[in-house]
Structure formats: C-alpha cells, structure tokens
Design a protein around this nucleic acid. Structure first.
Lengths: 203, 203
DNA sequence: AGCTTTTTATACCAGTCAGTATAGAAATTC
DNA sequence: GAATTTCTATACTGACTGGTATAAAAAGCT
C-alpha cells in the first residue's frame, strides 16, 4: 500500500504553489517576451529564489514552455470551441469575438504570447521560435481542415481557396493581437472585428 | 566664403561610407530587432569599430532611429504611392500588392521592421516602442483620411465605418508581415492577398 | 531522537551587454 | 614641413545575463 496522492512525499515540502508561480511566470513572459523576461524579473514576480525556480521548472526555456502550455490551455480555449461551430461563418465569428474578448478584458496582458514570444527570440533561442511557429501552424491546419469540411458541405462556395481563407483569418487575428498590444482602444478593436465580419461572404 | 559641400572638412576623413554602413545596420536591426542586435553584431556587419560607430551615429538608439528612417524612406515608399490611387479599392490593392512584393523579393529580410522593433523592445527601450507606435499611427491616420475622402466622393458606401476599415486593412498588412517573417511561402502570401482583395467591397 | 530528503538563502561563476578612456595613426590646412 | 584635427585600435568599465555550488534549515519517516 502506498499513498496515491503525490502530495505526500518525504523531505521538506515546497513553500510555494507551483501552479500559482507558473501563472505568474506566464504573465511576465506574456508582457516582456522570452528574452525580455530576465531571471530576476521572473523570480521577483514569482516570489521565489533562483535555485527554487530551477529545481521546480528546469531552466528558463522549459519554464517558458510550461507557461506556454498553460497559456494555450487557459487563454486559447476559445479556438477549439470556435471550430465546433455549425457553419463556417460561425467559426469565423467565434474566433474573432473570442480573440476580441480576450484582448479587451482588463485582467490579462495585451497582445498574443505566441507572437510576442516568437518575435522576441534572438538567434540563440531559435528552438523556441521554431516551437511557437509549429504550434501556430498546427492551429492553422485545424482551421484549414474545418473549412475544407465546410466547403465539402456546400457551406463555402466551390471556388473558394480554403488555404487563402485560412491565412486571411489568421492575419486578421494576428493584426488584432498586435494592435491590442500596441495600445488600441476597446472601441477600435470592436470596429475591427465588426468590419471583418461584415466582409465575410454569406450571411 | 565657405565651402557649401559638407564633404570637404579638415582633419582625417572617415574611412567608411556612412550611408552604406547605415544600410547594413538596417539589415541587422531588421532581422534581429532592437534588443536582439548587439553592438558586436552591428559593428562586425558594418565593418567598423565601436568608437567609429559612436562617433558617426551617436549611440545604439539613435542608430536605430536613423536606420528606421532609411527603412521608411526606401522600403515603405509604396505606402505613400498607394494612397494616391484614384479609388479606395485601388488604394487597398496597391497597399496589399506593395506589401506582398516587399515580403517576397529575396534580397531583403522578411517581416516588418516596425513590428519586429516594437515587439522586441523590453521595458527599458520604451521610448523606441513609443516612437514606433507613433509612426504606425500616423500612417494609419493618413489611410483614414484617404478613405474618408473616398467616402465623401461616394467611392465607399455611406454606411461604411472608415476607422474600422482602416484597422482592418492594417491588420491584414500586419498579419501578412508576421506570416512572412515566420516562414510562409510566396504562394501562401499570394493566396492571402488574393483572398483579401476578393473580400473587398465593390469591384 | 536520529536519519534522510528536499527545500531554502547566499554567494558566486563566466560570459555578454552598452558605452568609453586612452593613445597612436593618418590626412588636411596653413 | 609643422600644426591641427579627426580618425582608428585596444582595452577597459560597471552592470547585467543565465545558471550553479555550497551549506544551513525544515519537514517526514522509522
């Protein structure tokens, strides 16, 4: 018989909550980017010391990846939901409105962590950049698959270039995130989303 | 009587060409961002020493600004041209095709220097970020004015939200630049532009 | 209680950052 | 040719980077 709960283990227990500290690290990376966030920034915000951080998370790079996982799980959940919409127009609408909601709540940092992380990687941290690009591509592919299905269902015109349409939606989402990150007002972002939806083919 | 040409001055003349060195610095900043470009990166690429750089350009920040001026003058010239198009659709078309041409020639780095510079600025270099945002806003305003005029001319429907339309065009351009910067193929970028133009109201 | 395990805190490492002081070399003007 | 001016090269500064060695402190298990 052994204890099932991993909580109970020998030795001195950790004095901080790992999930909580990770959430704080996420905010720091989100606002400052990968290279912009120094270990001093991170440890001060998380309220732990350097050796504690390394013991709990490995190193800066793996901490970033864990924070990124949390970001996608918690903040990008609307993307997965959007793909379940019954029509292609519904998909686009949920994507745009979801992104708008995320960029206009006033708890979280502005901008998109994938974009910020990807651009703020110098040549050294190339593997992080590659990781971020791969994650973005996989989301792009999921959208592509969904729209291909819509085309097969007759929900999109036969002449439609699905890949182009995907890149188009992605570009608007990226632009939305970038504008939010550089100080656009809520009203401006709303106008952007409404205009984009007005452009969408069909009702 | 004094010599008009500033070329002739006393003392040992500079051994390198300032404009040429600036063009090289532009490429370095363009590919690595502001903070990502170290003085060592810069001086090695420019082929000059550190003191020469400081004597000729002031410091890193003012070098960046000079490089940015050059970028806008040489690489963003198509924007000013686009605004002169006779119709609003022509404006959008020239903007998108101009950006596409710039992102698909194979001499220059990929991505947009304004975006890269703006995102790759940590908290310290806040003034650079502010400068970049201001420049972007002024371009946005110019487009806004142009589309307002189009609306007054009856070239855009009365119901049109010009500010929203501007943010929309800006977002597509930003998305295009970002996708180009993260490895999208020429074909993909072309599809993005064609799809965007197909969405544009009117013929 | 005593032993083990894991956490903490402090101090440190080598490397890099932007920026500069110093001094020698080169070219122009008088 | 001599004086002046401005360049270049070398070496250095203090501050910061990510990462770690060391040792004390705290908790659980037997």
């Amino acid at each position: 018989m052994e204890c099932i709960l991993p909580k109970v283990c020998k030795g001195r227990p950790r004095e901080f909550d790992v999930e909580e500290a990770l959430a704080v690290a996420l905010r720091v990376f989100w606002t400052k980017g990968y290279e912009g966030a120094s270990l001093t920034d991170l440890t001060e915000a998380m309220g732990i010391t350097r050796p504690s951080l390394y013991a709990a998370f490995g190193n800066k790079e793996s901490l970033f990846r864990k924070a990124l996982d949390l970001y996608e799980r918690e903040k990008l959940a609307y993307v997965g939901e959007a793909l379940k919409a019954p029509t292609s127009r519904g998909v686009a609408e949920r994507l745009l409105r979801g992104a708008l909601a995320m960029q206009t709540n006033d708890c979280d940092p502005k901008g998109c962590m994938r974009i910020i992380g990807s651009v703020s990687c110098a040549s050294e941290a190339e593997s992080i950049r590659a990781d971020l690009t791969a994650r973005r591509r996989s989301a792009q592919r999921a959208l592509c698959d969904r729209l291909e299905r819509a085309k097969a269902d007759g929900d999109l015109p036969e002449s439609c270039d699905v890949e182009g349409l995907c890149a188009y939606v992605g570009a608007i989402l990226q632009g939305l995130a970038f504008q939010a990150g550089s100080g656009a007002t809520k009203k401006q972002l709303e106008a952007l989303v409404e205009t984009s939806l007005a452009m969408w083919p069909g009702k």
